[in-house]
Design a protein around this nucleic acid. Structure first.
Lengths: 188, 188
DNA sequence: CAGATAGATGCACTGCGTCCAACAATACGC
DNA sequence: GCGTATTGTTGGACGCAGTGCATCTATCTG
């Protein structure tokens, strides 16, 4: 068995307490002390479970993204790695946050944290595109398109009810757009 | 003339003091008090010039982006508005920060703030793309590509020496990639 | 000179995130 | 059983960003 003192709580409990409070008082008006208190631990212990307040929502997502980074580094292709990203995706605190962003006062917060991760994903993708060496500018643009496709799919998937739609299908559709390009004339 | 007490300092003075300190001690280790102190004003007054620490670097950029938002809202086209964005771009604190990001300890900070603005720009662009209504997912991906093109161009422009290269040219090149698409097969 | 206006300053306050020293609960070897 | 290593918990202190406010100061205008 594991040695040492057992954990007094869990990420799930903390996250649930946090989401309740976000719905009641909004994200910004909810302090870490309140979250920890409702979950039955001290504020100090909160940081044994999450690195920051926003990590409550993104912990699961970040774990999947680390896996995707590993897949890319392992030499599996871009579309393959991104498809794997979507495959086991399960509705968690993040999808709940996306759906109830407004009543939770999460609009800004979600935007910020999404932006960071979307750019990070693009940076992960770029080196694994075909023309990465020949034209860095070009690969940067394409990588951004792919990353945006992933996030757009996740958002749509969350909003249309996490169980109804198939995330892999949505992602396949938006990835197609990303790799196919605007030959039909997307510019206004 | 303008009425009321005249300003004791200016954005330029504050920004210069801040950049000095960033080079000396790094971004995170520099406090607002230190910046204000070196510029000869109080910490409280700092907020009369900038809204936050990171705004020191982005104030000029943000102003241009507001202009771009207005151009888009006014019905000028996407490529037109983005070209205008690049046209009068002048090397300021941001380009200095991009070049000396590492010694300034700005890598993370720049990444974060860029990500936010890149996504914001994409959101501004998306509604003005041709297929915005017919296929929102598609326009979101394209908008992200265009926004990435802008930022990639600005970054490259800053790195290659702000005076040497022409930002409009760089932008034109990367925008071409964004609208042309990956018919040559960008996926690995 | 008497407002009116706009900025400067100091101060208190909240809240995040970090650090640390002391304490508590578990597993394991003996 | 008992000590010990390990792991987690807790409280407290700290620095700093950002906000709010009451007060003071410098300028312009009539």
């Amino acid at each position: 068995m594991s040695v040492g003192r057992p954990r007094a709580s869990s990420r799930e409990v903390l996250a649930e307490a946090a989401c309740e409070l976000f719905l009641e008082r909004g994200f910004v008006s909810t302090s870490l002390s309140q979250i920890a208190s409702r979950a039955g631990v001290s504020r100090s212990s909160f940081f044994n479970y999450f690195d920051s307040k926003s990590d409550i929502l993104w912990a699961g997502f970040d774990e999947r993204m680390r896996a995707t980074a590993a897949a890319l580094a392992a030499g599996r292709g871009v579309s393959q790695s991104l498809t794997e990203f979507a495959d086991g995706f399960t509705p968690d605190g993040l999808s709940l946050a996306i759906v109830h962003a407004a009543p939770m006062g999460l609009e800004e917060e979600l935007e910020r944290e999404r932006a960071i991760r979307q750019l990070r994903l693009a940076r992960l993708i770029a080196p694994h595109l075909d023309d990465a060496v020949s034209d860095p500018l070009r690969s940067e643009v394409f990588a951004a398109a792919h990353a945006a496709a992933v996030f757009a799919a996740v958002w749509q998937w969350a909003r249309t009810g996490a169980g109804t739609t198939s995330l892999p299908d949505l992602l396949a559709r938006s990835l197609l757009t990303a790799s196919e390009g605007g030959t039909t004339g997307a510019l206004a």
